[in-house]
Amino acid sequence: MIMGELQSLASSGLPEALVNALTLAVAARPQEKAPGHYELQGEEVFMNVMQFATQPPEQKKAELHEQYIDIQLLLTGEERILFGVAGSARECEEMHHDEDYQLCSRIDGEQSMVLKPGMFVVFMPGEPHKPGCIVGTAGEIKKVVVKVRASLLTA
């Protein structure tokens, strides 16, 4: 997991493929888009724009991925994300290979972070994360999740 802010993206130390993906997403102006799926570089890099109310963490499940890196960028509101290191997901359901996600009920050694607008977090394959959790009281958020095929880091 890597956390950062858009304003310091150039000096973030992220691999070039991730900086490029975030730059493409920001250039597509997700704050002006309706919720939905938007291709940036075909199936190699795309973004999902989302808008929803945050929920208590006990009402949500953690997710993890095999094929894609998640870059979650908060556009509006505040969001708590619970997360763990690779291998810490427990009580997992079956992997949905076609959609590249697996849901899990528990994260061993769970950690927590709060995102504010302009902040992003990168989750590598296998790192469980539970986004969209409340900060204080429930509130509406808008975010973009940039999906980057993990093989782009080794290409």
Results as ranks from 00 to 15, higher is better:
Pro30Gly: 06
Tyr101Asp: 14
Ile141Ala: 03
Leu24Cys: 11
Pro57Gln: 13
Leu14Arg: 09
Met47Asn: 08
His65Tyr: 04
Lys116Asn: 04
Glu79His: 03
Ala17Asn: 04
Cys92Gln: 09
Gly109Ile: 10
Ala62Gln: 13
Leu152His: 04
Asn20His: 15
Leu14Asn: 06
Met47His: 06
Thr54Leu: 04
Gly4Lys: 13
Leu9Ala: 10
Met113Trp: 03
Leu82Val: 02
Lys116Asp: 02
Phe52Glu: 05
Asn48His: 02
Met113Ser: 01
Val148Thr: 02
Ile69Phe: 03
Ala86Glu: 15
Val49Lys: 03
Thr137Tyr: 09
Leu9Gly: 07
Gln67Met: 07
His96Ser: 10
Leu82Gly: 07
Gly42Met: 04
Glu127Trp: 00
Val49Cys: 05
Gly87Glu: 14
Met124His: 11
His97Asp: 12
Arg90Gly: 06
Cys133Glu: 07
Glu93Gly: 15
Ala34Met: 10
Glu94Tyr: 13
Val26Met: 09
Gln102Tyr: 09
Leu6His: 00
Val49Arg: 05
Lys33Phe: 02
Leu40Arg: 00
Pro57Thr: 01
Met3Arg: 14
Leu22Met: 13
Arg29Asp: 14
Thr154Pro: 03
Ser8Pro: 09
Glu127Leu: 05
Ala21Tyr: 05
Pro131Ile: 00
Leu82Asp: 08
Glu91Thr: 09
Cys92Ala: 11
Cys92Tyr: 13
Val144Asn: 03
Pro117Arg: 05
Leu73Phe: 08
Ile2Gly: 11
Val144Thr: 06
His65Cys: 10
Glu58Cys: 12
Leu74Tyr: 05
Phe52Leu: 11
Leu14Lys: 07
Ala25Thr: 08
Ala86Pro: 06
Leu9Asn: 10
Met124Ser: 13
Val19Glu: 12
Leu40Trp: 00
Ala21His: 00
Pro125Cys: 05
Ala10Gly: 11
Pro128Asp: 13
Thr154His: 14
Asp98His: 15
Val146Arg: 03
Ser88Gln: 12
Glu43Phe: 00
Gly87Leu: 07
Glu39Met: 07
Glu63Asn: 11
Pro131Gly: 10
Pro128Asn: 13
Leu82Tyr: 11
Asp108Tyr: 12
Ala155Ser: 13
Ala53Arg: 13
Pro56Ser: 14
Glu94Ile: 06
Lys142Tyr: 03
Val114Met: 02
Arg80Gln: 10
Gln41Asp: 10
Leu152Thr: 03
Glu5Gln: 14
Gly87Cys: 04
Glu44Tyr: 05
